[in-house]
Amino acid sequence: MTRNDYPLILQIKDVIKILGFSKSTVYSLVQEPDFPVLQVNNRKVVYRDDFFAWLDSKRKIIS
């Protein structure tokens, strides 16, 4: 799947699938101040483009 194949609003289960991380690891990431999460009522969601921008910002070049 490409980035644009995902819905505009990602649920946490989508983030878990994309990253391949455990549920507890993703919920820990969600608590980080720079993680682009939105609280909508009792649900946490993420704008797709903000999530991938955040993910790109975490990339490190290894030389």
Score class of each variant (00 low, 15 high):
Leu8Ser: 14
Ile12Glu: 07
Ser57Thr: 13
Arg3Cys: 08
Val30Phe: 00
Lys44His: 05
Gly20Asp: 02
Leu55Ala: 06
Glu32Ile: 12
Tyr6Cys: 09
Phe52Leu: 04
Asp34Val: 02
Val26Pro: 01
Glu32Met: 13
Tyr27Gly: 02
Leu29Ala: 01
Val45Leu: 14
Tyr6Arg: 09
Gln11Gly: 14
Tyr47Leu: 14
Asp49Ile: 00
Asn41Leu: 06
Lys23Ser: 14
Phe35Leu: 10
Arg59His: 11
Leu55Gln: 11
Ile18Thr: 08
Gln31Leu: 13
Gly20Ala: 05
Gln11His: 14
Arg43Cys: 03
Ile61Phe: 06
Phe52Gly: 03
Asn42Pro: 00
Asp50Pro: 02
Phe51Ile: 01
Val40Asn: 04
Asn42Ala: 12
Asp34Ser: 10
Ile61Arg: 08
Thr2Val: 04
Phe21Lys: 06
Val45Ala: 07
Ile62Arg: 05
Met1Pro: 12
Val37Pro: 01
Val15Leu: 11
Val30Asn: 01
Asp56His: 01
Lys58Phe: 04
Ser57Val: 05
Gln39Thr: 13
Asp14Thr: 10
Pro36Met: 02
Ser28Pro: 02
Asp5Leu: 10
Glu32Gln: 15
Gln31Tyr: 04
Asp49Trp: 06
Asp49Ser: 08
Ile12Lys: 13
Val15Gly: 11
Asn42Gln: 15
Ile18Ala: 07
Phe35Trp: 15
Lys13Gln: 11
Ser63Leu: 08
Ser22His: 00
Lys13Trp: 03
Ile16Leu: 02
Phe35His: 04
Leu55Asp: 07
Tyr47Lys: 02
Trp54Met: 07
Ser28Arg: 15
Asp50Val: 03
Ser57Met: 13
Tyr6Glu: 03
Ser63Cys: 04
Val45Met: 12
Arg48Pro: 05
Val46Lys: 12
Ile12Ser: 07
Ile61Gly: 12
Leu29Lys: 11
Asp34Asn: 14
Pro36Ile: 05
Tyr6Met: 08
Glu32Thr: 15
Gln39Arg: 11
Leu38Ile: 08
Lys58Ile: 12
Val46Ala: 06
Trp54Ser: 01
Val45Lys: 09
Asp14Ser: 08
Pro7Thr: 04
Val15Ile: 15
Lys44Phe: 15
Ile18Leu: 03
Asp49Tyr: 05
Asn42Glu: 09
Arg48Lys: 11
Ile18Gln: 06
Arg3Ala: 01
Ser28Met: 10
Pro33Leu: 11
Leu55Thr: 01
Ile16Ser: 02
Leu38Phe: 09
Leu38Tyr: 05
Val30Gln: 01
Thr25Trp: 00
Val15Asp: 13
Leu38Cys: 07
Val15Lys: 07
Lys58Tyr: 04
Thr2Glu: 13
Arg3Lys: 14
Lys58His: 08
Asp49Val: 05
Leu29Arg: 11
Leu55Arg: 12
Ile18Ser: 00
Arg48Ile: 08
Phe52Asp: 10
Asn4His: 15
Tyr47Gly: 00
Phe35Ile: 10
Asp34Trp: 05
Asp56Val: 03
Tyr47Ser: 00
Leu10Glu: 04
Lys60Ala: 07
Leu19Cys: 04
Met1His: 08
Val45Gly: 03
Val26Cys: 05
Val26Ala: 03
Phe51Pro: 12
Phe21Pro: 02
Phe21Met: 13
Val45Tyr: 06
Ile62Glu: 06
Gln11Ile: 02
Ser22Gln: 06
Lys17Trp: 07
Thr2Pro: 00
Leu8Met: 02
Asn4Trp: 10
Ser24Val: 09
Val40Glu: 13
Tyr6Gln: 12
